[in-house]
Amino acid sequence: MCGTCGCGSEENGITILSPKELTSHHHNEEGHMHNHEHSHNHHHHEHSHDHDHHDVHHNHEHNHSNTHHHHHHKTVIDLEQDILQHNEVMAARNKGYFEAKGIFAINLVSSPGSGKTSILERTLIDLKNEKSFYVIEGDQQTLNDANRIDALDIPVIQINTGKGCHLESDMVYEAVKKLNIRDNSILMIENVGNLVCPSMFNLGENKRVVIISTTEGEDKPIKYPDMFHTSDICIINKIDLLPYLNINIEKLKTYALQVNPNLKFFEVSATTGEGMNDWYKWLKEN
């Protein structure tokens, strides 16, 4: 879907790139323009057609006849269709692929700056000799995060969502196809930094991990309940800063458990490595 200009065609404004290939961006932009023009013309055509028809029948009461006309010819389509159905279908497709190949897929979500990429980097450095990892990075712009992962020699694909505020399952589907993941690997999907929108979009992941840092305020779970409600794991990052902060971690947990009583916590510092072993243990057990 196009978050850039509001047109309905899919994948516009979104680029899916590996740091190793940097060429296809402009190509996409051109395809984008074409699509736009096309739908324009199409609709105009339909409009004028309708009007001609009218004028022949009721020349005088144009406004009136308009409503009459619609009453006579209107058709009701009963749908009851889920608006997110397309996303759910593609998510199911991803899930089936992950299951068949024994891939454990994690959707990492948080607000910007809570340390998703740092936790990811540290995890990859510490575990890459034991487990095979693949990474999908979601950001609105830049390959910066993918470059950080690429520097560790981990296969990575960057999805740039343009103005889009979250990853959707069809983007992940395309990225997964490019990654060509080995069986029994761990796939880390780092979502766009945003505590609201990604909560609604299932990517087909096995587990959703929400990261919150000690600098963010203990009432975040009830301010942004949807994300905590849909997550399985909550990582509390930057615990090395606790001595300098006025935050009560127990209160934060209480709030989070009110939203989601099944939430499991890890308290870590990606900078010092404190608490990371418990997280690794969980990761390896799953």
Partner: peptide, 10 residues
């Protein structure tokens, strides 16, 4: 819920 219940079309 997040559904399109029905459409009236012409």
């Amino acid at each position: 819920e997040l559904r399109v219940k029905y459409l009236e079309v012409s």
